[in-house]
Nucleic acid binder design. Structure first.
Lengths: 169, 169
DNA sequence: CATTTTAGGTTGCAATTTGCAACTCATACG
DNA sequence: CGTATGAGTTGCAAATTGCAACCTAAAATG
């Protein structure tokens, strides 16, 4: 079975692996956030193979995470631009970078995220309740949503029965 | 060039692709959050090939994102447990699921994240300034950190010069 | 206006990674 | 003792990646 077929349901995390769960896609999005717009620039900055880059960009455009626009000033050139959907990924990218800096780079981060206006460091991304309280892993649980299929509901029941609800901590 | 070699620096987002930027790893972590602990259960729930699962678990253990513990009650069995580092990934997983539900599943999410105590939906994960204000993409910028190598600093300078600073919006 | 360069790809091929089934090895169960 | 189970490993076919070369249209150059 391939990753894309896991729970053919609308499980959001399964769907997301379609995007960032394959090599290069996350780095391509990072480049786009850094201002890169052109095919050759993505290639040069990342060192990604051109055929793979081609496939990745197509997929991102398909998913409405990049917009492919012909340049007005140079009719050879094409611009890949962030969309509302990909811009909305920013908290995730910041959070991933913070997490990685802490746990994978042992605090030696080569990049920092700061508030543009003040230059102050962005505080750690957190899960908060409606009233603003910060929540720990053990305070959060995953439940089947309105569009869960019976298979997934059964899967959750198994998990709850076997493991005493979601094990966040 | 392979993805892992991009900027051999400590760029946190580049490092993170080593973990979740390859097939299955994110789903394995999701399973762990759902309470799965055993090799055969990961295989059955995800439908992942056993050899690939083996490689993924080894890597996650290497990176201290899972802990491999021999079961006390059954000496054949092994438990893969979340660590402090992987538990700290929760905000990211919640954020990714929220984002995906909104932009990839068109609102038809099969899973929801709720506060365990109250059952109330977790609000959208956001980037906030130190004073708590929510920040948009255009309010955030990436800058070289204390451990950036000259190559990365140059890369940022190019980006700033060429694109008028980081293009978040 | 002929020539060269540039932008954005595609193609072919070798190397790596994945998917699948079968096999191993140690322990548990009956 | 015989069988089943947990946690892998092994071998092989299929898919994906990395690399270099090639292509086409549109600038730029002289």
């Amino acid at each position: 079975m391939t990753q894309e077929n896991v729970f053919k349901c609308n499980c959001p995390l399964a769907r997301v692996t379609e995007v960032i769960g394959e090599p290069w896609t996350l780095m391509v999005l990072r480049e786009a956030f850094l201002g890169t717009r052109h095919f050759n620039d993505f290639e040069r900055e990342l060192g990604i193979a051109r055929n793979v880059l081609s496939v990745r960009l197509k997929k991102l455009v398909d998913l409405d995470l990049l917009e492919r626009v012909r340049s007005e000033t140079d009719r050879r050139a094409v611009e890949y631009r962030l969309t509302d959907a990909s811009r909305d990924l920013l908290p995730i990218l910041v959070g991933l970078a913070q997490w990685s800096g802490k746990w994978l780079c042992e605090g030696h981060s080569a990049t920092r995220f700061v508030e543009r206006a003040t230059g102050r460091e962005i505080p750690r991304i957190a899960v908060r309740a409606v009233d603003g309280r910060e929540l720990a892993a053990r305070d959060v649980t995953m439940v089947p949503g309105p569009d869960a299929n019976p298979e997934l509901v059964a899967r959750f029941e198994r998990a709850v029965t076997a493991a005493g609800d979601v094990q966040g901590g």
